[in-house]
Design a protein around this nucleic acid. Structure first.
Length: 578
DNA sequence: GCCGTTTTCGGCCCGACTGTTTTCAGTCG
């Protein structure tokens, strides 16, 4: 059995956690954690290198880690890790996912109360014994319970990127089946909701029962919840439920429409059908003189006198009226994107070098890539000092000279911290020497809404701030965004000509899609930015395009659709003229 | 445990916030 890169990373991370529990030297712990990062982000076959004892020279892997990785890659096990792990079940590591609990508290819980899993922690909190531990109190216990409740609530919720990956893998299997004519994912995944609860698949087939049976016996089906002749529900390893509906080719457009939703959109569409004397269900129109020749979803909308409504817009937020008036926007397409601005490199907390990021962007077909590493007030992210930033600007100038062309170049920027006061982390002189700057909040997240809004507005009023990064700082399924008045920020963006970022890292999707239509109507421009910390994460731009569509954005609303020459001119304009 | 044009020991990121304390430990970013 060969060891995977993921396994190497997992073992190093577990060692770091276990050493923390034991109160080891924090720098040693960091060395393991950084080792895990290096292995995870290494550009090349790190497993083979470890096996062949050829790790020498990789920064961050010293003698000790090289030996351990070699042992792990050759034998599949690591004695050091095995010894550390004695007495800690797999479930123990779940505890580290809880907000407000770190290694020290977990160590106390484990030592004093034998807590070694989420359920045993919950029992201890409910029994009230946690509050009595040294360093703990009633509030801590309450906070843990809240964190546990949040975790339970989101247990069956998944981020869009996770859902799409799972859906694509399953669709590939379904489409290869010889009796499948058409197959699609439906539901909230198809609508590009930021969080989805389950996956719905629709297949068109002359042999539905054969398909449901086929679905149930796939390796990815860890549990079969229900299996009939036309419907099958399974659960994946991840806990995600997947429903398959197998219908005839005639029924397919109706089923796809019906199970794509949203429920509210469907209700509105059905009532529209009723006005014409037809009823509409997941299989067909029924009633007198029902339309025939329905081959795809567009035919259903057409029969009801509507333009085709793209799935992303089906939330009953005005799309049906617009489709009726022929006023649906021509939505942005992923292919329209020409560049992106908020990306990190190894200079701060990214995993890929400047050069690797640039090559990745070029391969993706982009014409420009903006480098925006962290600023000095984010030391946890290795934020740049003014001197380091000045050096990076020179590096980028040199890179462009050597590798740039009229087809591709780098822009030098910064993700500059908005300090608690609303001041920026760099002086204006330095900001002015950049091609652009993204301003983001990374600390003092608990200000009240008024203070936070004032703070952000102050930053946006700076003439050198091109755009505002992740407006609310939310981390989906993990942390709510900070309190901020969206209306006021949008108005300020319109007035000061500050672009608002659509951070399309699927952990964020921030600003939320629900606000973009309003921002667009006020003339606010959007920049779709992946907040990429690795070359792969540049791919998040695809999600960004979907979420922008969900926010009713057109090509002209998204500044990163500008081709390189236009973008160079645009960035040179004084902010009020943009 | 890692690193080094300050080279083999002594640094390595640090401030804000919270809840527990009564001067500070733990967590987070």
């Amino acid at each position: 059995m060969s060891v995977t890169r993921e396994r190497l990373v997992e073992v190093l991370e577990e060692i770091a956690l276990l050493l923390e529990i034991q109160g080891e030297n924090p720098f040693k712990i960091r060395a393991y954690r950084q080792g895990a990062e290096v292995v995870s982000g290494y550009d090349g076959d790190i497993v083979a290198l470890a096996r062949d004892n050829k790790l020498e020279g990789i920064k961050g892997l010293g003698d000790a880690l090289r030996d351990k990785l070699h042992e792990l890659a050759t034998t599949g096990e690591l004695e050091f890790h095995k010894k550390l792990r004695v007495g800690y079940p797999d479930s123990f590591f779940d505890l580290f996912d809880l907000d407000g609990l770190g290694p020290k508290k977990i160590a106390v819980l484990n030592r004093e109360l034998k807590v070694d899993s989420i359920p045993s922690l919950k029992a201890a909190c409910e029994a009230g014994t946690v509050a009595g531990l040294p360093g703990f109190g009633a509030k801590t216990q309450t906070k843990i319970l809240e964190s546990l409740a949040r975790r339970e609530q989101s247990a069956e919720a998944f981020r869009l990127d996770i859902a799409i990956q799972a859906a694509e893998d399953i669709l590939e299997v379904l489409r290869l089946h010889p009796e499948v004519l058409r197959a699609s994912v439906a539901g909230s995944t198809r609508r590009s909701k930021e969080i989805v609860h389950d996956l719905d698949f629709i297949v068109a087939t002359p042999k539905p029962a054969e398909l449901t049976a086929f679905f149930a016996k796939q390796g990815f089906a860890k549990e079969v919840i229900a299996q009939g002749d036309t419907k099958c529900s399974i659960r994946l390893e991840s806990g995600m439920q997947c429903d398959l509906r197998a219908v005839s080719n005639d029924q397919y457009p109706f089923a796809l429409f019906y199970f794509t939703g949203s429920k509210e959109h469907n209700v509105a569409i059905r009532s529209r059908a009723l006005k014409k004397g037809w009823s509409l269900n997941e299989y067909a129109f029924s009633g007198e003189n029902v339309p025939t020749n329905i081959h795809d979803e567009a035919d259903i909308y057409r029969a009801l006198g509507l333009d085709f409504v793209p799935p992303e817009l089906r939330e009953n937020r005005g799309e049906i009226e617009a489709a009726d008036d022929g006023k649906l926007p021509r939505l942005l397409e992923w292919e329209n994107l020409r560049g992106t601005f908020h990306n990190h490199t190894t200079e701060s907390d990214g995993k890929a070098s400047l050069n690797a990021m640039a090559e990745g962007a070029r391969e993706l077909g982009l014409q420009y890539l903006g480098i925006a590493d962290h600023s000095k007030s984010s030391p946890q992210a290795n934020g740049l000092s003014p001197e380091r930033l000045a050096t990076q600007i020179q590096t980028i100038v040199a890179w462009n000279k050597e590798h740039g062309s009229d087809q591709f170049r780098l822009f030098s920027g910064s993700e500059v911290d908005i300090l608690k006061s609303g001041d920026l982390d760099f002086e204006d002189d330095l900001l002015a020497s950049l091609d652009y700057a993204v301003a983001s909040v990374h600390n003092a997240l608990t200000l009240d809404e008024e203070e936070m809004t004032k703070r952000i507005i102050k930053a946006m009023e700076n003439p050198y701030i091109t755009m505002l990064g992740h407006l609310t700082g939310r981390l989906l399924l993990r942390r709510d965004g900070y309190a901020v008045n969206h209306e006021k920020i949008i108005d300020c963006a319109a007035e000061t000509r500050t672009v608002i970022e659509l951070n399309c890292n699927p952990k964020r999707f921030d600003m939320d899609w629900r606000w973009w239509h309003r921002a667009r109507d006020k003339g606010v421009l959007c920049s779709i930015n992946p907040d990429a910390h690795s070359v792969n994460q540049l791919q998040y731009l695809r999600f960004g395009a979907s979420v922008a569509r969900k926010g009713w954005l057109r090509r002209e609303d998204v500044v990163t659709t500008k081709p390189l020459k236009e973008m160079e001119e645009w960035l040179k304009l004084p902010k009020p003229k943009r």
